[in-house]
Computed example of a mutant assay.
Amino acid sequence: MGHYQIRAAQNLSCTPAEAWEFLSNPGNLQRITPPKMKFEILDGLAENMFAGQIIHYKVSPFKGFKTHWVTEITHVKEGEYFVDEQRFGPYAFWHHQHRIEAISGGTRMEDIVNYKLPLGPLGDLAHGLFVKRQLKEIFAYREAELLRRFGKAESGTDQLSFKKL
C-alpha cells in the first residue's frame, strides 16, 4: 500500500507578501481549483488563517461522485508557510505543506503533499489509473491560474514531480 508525494514549485512575479495574502486565504482555493471539480467551501472561512482552523469543503473528484472534505490548518508561520491536513475526506492520509520564499524578481511557491489512498491495493491501482493524472491536472490548472494572476518570475524553474514513498 503506497504512500505518495507530490512536489510542485512555481516562480511568480509578485512579492512574498502578495503571494502570502492570496495563498493563505482559503476563500481563494476555489479560484485555483478546476471548475469541473465543483469545489465549494461550506464552512470555516476566516479573515486570517490560523493554526487549528477547520475548513469544510464539498468537491467532486470525478464525474458523478461528490464528497465532503474537512481539513485542519495545523501550522502557520506568517509569510512563510502553512500546513493543511485532511481530517475527513477521500484520502486515507493527506498532509500538504505550502511554502513561499523570496527569489530574485519575485516569489517561489512550493507545495509538498504526502498522501495515501484508501482501500489498500485497490487504492494503489486507482492511483495508477486516474488519481495521479487527476492530481497533475489540478496542479497544472493551479499553475496556469497563478501565472495569469501574478505572472512568471524570470529566475528559477518550475517543477512538478511524483514519487512513491
Score class of each variant (00 low, 15 high):
residue 59 V to R: 00
residue 147 L to T: 03
residue 99 R to T: 13
residue 19 A to I: 14
residue 109 M to E: 03
residue 121 P to V: 10
residue 140 A to S: 05
residue 14 C to T: 07
residue 161 S to G: 05
residue 128 G to F: 14
residue 49 M to I: 15
residue 151 G to L: 15
residue 29 L to Q: 04
residue 32 I to R: 03
residue 46 A to Y: 02
residue 58 K to G: 12
residue 117 L to M: 14
residue 47 E to L: 12
residue 31 R to K: 11
residue 70 V to D: 06
residue 156 G to I: 14
residue 138 I to A: 03
residue 73 I to W: 00
residue 87 R to A: 14
residue 105 G to Q: 13
residue 56 H to C: 08
residue 162 F to I: 09
residue 157 T to A: 11
residue 86 Q to C: 08
residue 154 E to G: 15
residue 160 L to E: 06
residue 116 K to W: 08
residue 15 T to W: 07
residue 114 N to P: 05
residue 118 P to H: 01
residue 123 G to K: 04
residue 111 D to T: 08
residue 18 E to D: 14
residue 77 K to C: 09
residue 128 G to A: 05
residue 139 F to C: 02
residue 141 Y to G: 04
residue 40 E to S: 09
residue 26 P to L: 05
residue 35 P to W: 03
residue 72 E to F: 06
residue 87 R to K: 10
residue 27 G to D: 02
residue 8 A to W: 04
residue 125 L to N: 03
residue 89 G to H: 00
residue 73 I to R: 00
residue 77 K to A: 13
residue 88 F to E: 06
residue 43 D to E: 15
residue 119 L to G: 01
residue 70 V to M: 02
residue 43 D to A: 13
residue 73 I to V: 15
residue 25 N to P: 01
residue 92 A to C: 02
residue 79 G to C: 09
residue 33 T to M: 14
residue 66 K to C: 15
residue 118 P to K: 00
residue 52 G to F: 03
residue 50 F to N: 04
residue 97 Q to T: 07
residue 68 H to E: 14
residue 56 H to K: 03
residue 72 E to M: 10
residue 149 R to W: 06
residue 130 F to R: 00
residue 159 Q to M: 15
residue 138 I to M: 08
residue 162 F to K: 00
residue 14 C to W: 08
residue 4 Y to V: 10
residue 138 I to C: 05
residue 1 M to F: 04
residue 44 G to F: 09
residue 52 G to L: 12
residue 95 H to N: 10
residue 89 G to I: 10
residue 50 F to L: 00
residue 132 K to D: 05
residue 151 G to M: 12
residue 160 L to A: 07
residue 48 N to P: 05
residue 146 L to D: 06
residue 53 Q to G: 13
residue 93 F to P: 03
residue 108 R to C: 15
residue 7 R to M: 13
residue 38 K to S: 08
residue 22 F to S: 04
residue 22 F to W: 11
residue 57 Y to I: 09
residue 30 Q to A: 13
residue 117 L to C: 10
residue 86 Q to I: 13
residue 70 V to P: 00
residue 59 V to L: 11
residue 20 W to V: 15
residue 151 G to E: 12
residue 79 G to F: 10
residue 112 I to K: 01
residue 64 G to R: 00
residue 9 A to G: 04
residue 14 C to Q: 01
residue 127 H to E: 15
residue 107 T to G: 10
residue 144 A to W: 02
residue 144 A to M: 03
residue 163 K to F: 11
residue 81 Y to A: 10
residue 89 G to R: 00
residue 83 V to G: 09
residue 107 T to Q: 10
residue 135 L to K: 00
residue 87 R to M: 12
residue 42 L to E: 12
residue 20 W to I: 13
residue 45 L to S: 08
residue 58 K to V: 12
residue 3 H to Y: 07
residue 18 E to I: 14
residue 1 M to D: 07
residue 112 I to F: 01
residue 133 R to N: 05
residue 105 G to F: 09
residue 45 L to M: 12
residue 17 A to F: 02
residue 74 T to P: 04
residue 95 H to E: 07
residue 97 Q to H: 11
residue 60 S to P: 10
residue 77 K to H: 11
residue 36 K to F: 11
residue 56 H to F: 09
residue 6 I to G: 01
